[in-house]
C-alpha cells in the first residue's frame, strides 16, 4: 500500500527535488573563472622559474641534474666555462624548458643542488604559438624575478629550503685559479717595481 503510494506520487523524486532546491539557499561553491580565481596553496606546482642569489648572481651552475631527474626529459642545459674575478666558473649558456613536455612533477626542483629552480603559481600562459612554450633562460629568470616570493614559498613549503634564510651558509663556491693568482701577484709586483 505504502509502496503503491510512493510509486504513484513520486515521493522519492519529490524528496530529491526538495533537497536540490534547498541548495538555492546554500552558499555557492562555483568560481566564475576568470573573474574569480582560486587561491592556490604555496605548494602549487606551476610554471618553473630560475632564481638568483640575493647578490644578483645566477644560482644555476649548469650541472644538468634537473634534466637527469626529469621524467619527461624536457630540460636542455648547455654549460660553458666562464672566467672572471680570478675564478673559473661553470654556468649555463642556455637553459630551455619545453613546457609542452613538462609534467610539473617538481623533480627538477628537488634535484637542484643549488636551489636555482623554483615553481610558481603561474598557470596562465597559454599562447597561440607553440614555440613560445619553450621557456629559455631569459624568460625563466624573468619569471623568477616576477614571482620570486612564490618560488621561495614553494621551496619552503616543499622542504627544499629553511625558512630562516640559511642560504648564505652554502659551503659551495668555485675555487680560484692559480694562473690568475699568479698573474695577480705579478701585477702587484710590477706595480711595486714601477
Amino acid at each position: 500500500m505504502n509502496k503503491l503510494f510512493h510509486s504513484a506520487f513520486f515521493t522519492e523524486i519529490l524528496k530529491a527535488l526538495r533537497m536540490v532546491f534547498g541548495h538555492y539557499f546554500v552558499k555557492e561553491v562555483t568560481l566564475q573563472y576568470p573573474h574569480e580565481k582560486n587561491t592556490l596553496p604555496d605548494t602549487h606546482r606551476g610554471a618553473l622559474c630560475l632564481l638568483r642569489y640575493e647578490s644578483g648572481e645566477e644560482r644555476c651552475v649548469g650541472c644538468d641534474l634537473c634534466n637527469a631527474a626529469c621524467p619527461s626529459y624536457c630540460i636542455t642545459v648547455v654549460s660553458a666555462v666562464e672566467e672572471n674575478d680570478h675564478v673559473v666558473r661553470r654556468f649555463a649558456t642556455s637553459f630551455d624548458i619545453d613546457m609542452t613536455k613538462c609534467v610539473f612533477c617538481g623533480f627538477c626542483v628537488e634535484a637542484c643542488p643549488v636551489n636555482a629552480l623554483g615553481m610558481t603559481k603561474m598557470y596562465e600562459y597559454s599562447t597561440s604559438n607553440k614555440r613560445d612554450l619553450v621557456f629559455d633562460k631569459a624568460k625563466l629568470y624573468e619569471i623568477g624575478e616576477k614571482w620570486h616570493g612564490q618560488a621561495k614559498g614553494y621551496l619552503i613549503a616543499h622542504n627544499q629550503e629553511g625558512e630562516d634564510e640559511t642560504v648564505s651558509e652554502y659551503r659551495y663556491r668555485f675555487p680560484s685559479s692559480r694562473k690568475q693568482e699568479e698573474e695577480q701577484k705579478e701585477e702587484v709586483e710590477a706595480q711595486v717595481d714601477g
Binding site: E110, A111, V114, Y170
Partner: peptide, 22 residues
C-alpha cells in the same frame, strides 16, 4: 634522497643527491 639543507653542506649528501638523481 638526502634532505636539501644537508646537500648544501655535506659532501656525502651531495654525492647521494647526484647518484640518486642520475
Amino acid at each position: 634522497a638526502p634532505p636539501k639543507e644537508r646537500v648544501f653542506t655535506d659532501m656525502e649528501s651531495m654525492i647521494y643527491q647526484f647518484k640518486l638523481y642520475t
